[in-house]
Simulated assay, not measured.
Amino acid sequence: MSAHLVIADEVATALGEGRGVVALESTLLAHGLPPGRSFEVGVRLEKVIRAAGAVPATIAVLDGVPRVGLGIGELERVCSPGLAKLSLRDLGAAIAMRRDGATTVASTATLAHKAGIRVFATGGLGGVHLSVPSGTVTWDVSADLDVLANTPVTVVCSGVKSILDIAATVEVLETRSVPVLGYRTDHFPAFYLRESAHRVPWRVDNAVDAAEVISAHGEVSGSGVLMVNPVPAEYELDRALHDRLLDEGMALLRERDIRGKDVTPALLEHFHSGSAGSSLAANTELVADNARVAAEVAVQLSSR
Rank of each mutant, 00 (worst) to 15 (best):
I49N: 11
A51F: 07
A52V: 07
G53V: 11
A54Y: 01
V55Q: 12
V55A: 11
P56M: 08
P56T: 12
P56V: 06
P56F: 10
A57C: 04
A57E: 00
T58W: 00
T58D: 04
I59K: 03
I59Y: 01
V61Q: 03
L62F: 00
D63T: 00
V65K: 13
P66C: 05
V68N: 03
L70S: 08
E74Y: 03
E74D: 13
L75T: 06
L75A: 09
E76K: 15
R77P: 00
C79I: 02
S80G: 10
P81F: 03
G82F: 05
L83V: 01
L83K: 10
A84C: 05
A84L: 14
K85M: 12
L86M: 06
L86E: 06
S87A: 15
S87Y: 06
L88E: 08
L88I: 12
L88M: 12
D90I: 01
D90P: 03
D90W: 01
L91Q: 00
L91R: 03
L91M: 14
G92N: 08
G92D: 13
G92A: 14
G92Y: 05
A94L: 07
A94M: 10
I95D: 00
I95T: 09
M97F: 07
R98S: 10
D100K: 10
D100N: 15
G101C: 08
G101P: 09
A102M: 02
V105C: 04
V105H: 09
V105T: 11
S107E: 12
L111G: 05
A112L: 06
A112M: 07
K114G: 02
A115D: 04
R118D: 07
V119G: 09
F120I: 04
F120P: 01
T122L: 11
T122C: 13
G123C: 09
G123R: 08
G124C: 02
G124N: 07
G126Q: 09
G127P: 08
V128K: 09
V128E: 03
H129W: 04
L130Y: 09
S131H: 14
V132H: 15
V132A: 04
S134P: 13
T136Y: 13
T138F: 12
T138Q: 14
W139G: 12
W139F: 14
W139D: 04
W139S: 14
D140Y: 08
D140L: 08
D140F: 06
V141Y: 11
S142D: 08
A143F: 03
D144S: 06
L145N: 04
D146S: 14
D146C: 02
V147K: 13
P152R: 11
P152N: 10
P152S: 10
V153D: 04
T154E: 10
T154I: 10
V155N: 06
V156M: 08
S158M: 00
G159F: 03
G159M: 04
K161E: 02
A168T: 07
A168K: 14
T169K: 12
T169F: 09
V170A: 15
V170E: 07
E171Y: 11
E171S: 14
E171H: 14
V172G: 05
V172L: 14
L173D: 02
L173I: 06
E174W: 02
R176I: 02
R176V: 00
S177R: 15
S177Y: 13
L181T: 01
L181G: 04
Y183K: 05
R184A: 14
D186L: 14
